[in-house]
Computed example of a mutant assay.
Amino acid sequence: MAKQVTAEKRQRRERGSINPDDIIKGAFELAESVGIDNLSMPLLGKHLGVGVTSIYWYFRKKDDLLNAMTDRALRQYVFATPYVEAKDWRETLGNHARIMRKTFLGNPILCDLILIRSALSPRAAKVGVAAVEKAIGDLVQAGLSPEDAFNTYSAMSVHVRGSVVLRRLSDKNRSAEDAPGDFAEVMVIDPETTPLLAQVTDEAHRIGVSDDNNFDYGLACILDHAERLIDEKSAPAPRRKTTTPRRKAGTR
Rank of each mutant, 00 (worst) to 15 (best):
S40F: 07
I23C: 09
K25A: 14
A27K: 02
E29D: 15
A31Y: 03
E32C: 12
E8D: 15
R15L: 11
K46A: 13
S33M: 10
F59L: 07
K61E: 14
I18C: 07
I24W: 03
D37H: 06
E32Y: 02
V34I: 14
F59R: 00
L48H: 02
T53G: 12
L48I: 08
I55Y: 06
I36Q: 05
L44A: 04
K9A: 13
S17H: 09
K25F: 10
P20T: 10
Q11L: 09
I55R: 06
S54F: 03
E8A: 10
R60G: 13
L44K: 01
L30A: 12
T6W: 04
P20A: 10
H47P: 00
S33W: 04
V5A: 15
P20Y: 13
V50S: 00
K61V: 01
Y58L: 05
L39H: 06
L43C: 12
I55H: 03
D22I: 04
G51K: 01
W57A: 11
R13N: 01
E8M: 08
H47E: 05
I18Q: 05
S33N: 14
G35D: 08
Y58M: 10
L44I: 05
K61N: 15
I36M: 15
I24D: 00
L39R: 02
Y56H: 09
L39D: 03
K25D: 14
R15E: 03
Y58N: 07
F28D: 07
D21V: 13
P42H: 06
I24V: 15
L30E: 11
Y56I: 00
